Simulated scan of single mutants.
Amino acid sequence: MLDNLLQVYQNDFATISLVVEEFLLVLEWRRHVDFAERKEGLLIALTISKENKINYWIIDDLYHGYISFEEKEWLLSEWMQRISGSGIQKIAYLARDYFSALAVNLDFRVRIITEYMERSKIENEIFIDYPTALTWLFPE
């Protein structure tokens, strides 16, 4: 499926690609990003997603690390409002160091899963590789 990736956006910290026929967007962070960059990348991805009627996301966060308090608050408030009603059904997060990513942000992870499910009905999970994430996104 990822053989059909069409790159639609790139800057120094993010690449956004689509598999249009599968309604899939892939956001790849190219390096560790700060809050302003993460916000910019997510908002660009959301715009592209709406324009292309995307239902599924993979966020490839190879450089995932600490999430600041300010970023957490933005994700739980403004981001949650923006993504609600967007048509996105599932978001798969790729964290190569799954256990570290889970441990560092466990409280926030539980909080955001709850918020996504209650406020937007968007399912989200963490994976360590593309094949597993794709199986979850497209279980056929």
Results as ranks from 00 to 15, higher is better:
A95G: 01
V33M: 02
R109D: 15
E115I: 13
P131R: 03
I58Y: 06
L106A: 12
H64L: 07
Y93A: 09
L106T: 10
L137I: 14
L18A: 13
F127P: 01
F23I: 06
W29L: 09
G87K: 11
F138N: 15
E125F: 07
L43K: 01
R82C: 10
L76P: 04
G65S: 12
V110P: 05
G85P: 14
V33K: 00
R111Q: 12
N124C: 12
D97N: 15
F99H: 11
D129S: 06
L43I: 01
L134Q: 09
A14N: 08
K39F: 02
W29K: 06
F99I: 06
T132G: 09
I128F: 04
L75Y: 13
E140R: 13
T135Y: 15
S100A: 07
I54C: 10
A103K: 14
R119G: 15
L24H: 12
F69N: 07
E123W: 14
S49V: 12
M117C: 04
P131Y: 04
L46C: 03
A14S: 10
F138S: 14
R38L: 02
L5F: 08
V20E: 01
S68N: 11
K121C: 07
E73Y: 01
S120T: 10
L106V: 11
L6C: 09
E123C: 08
V26M: 03
E70A: 14
V20P: 02
S49A: 14
I54P: 14
V19R: 05
Y116F: 15
V8N: 11
D34L: 06
V33F: 01
L42R: 00
L94C: 15
L76K: 06
R96A: 07
P131F: 06
E37T: 01
G41L: 00
R38D: 02
Y9F: 12
Y93S: 11
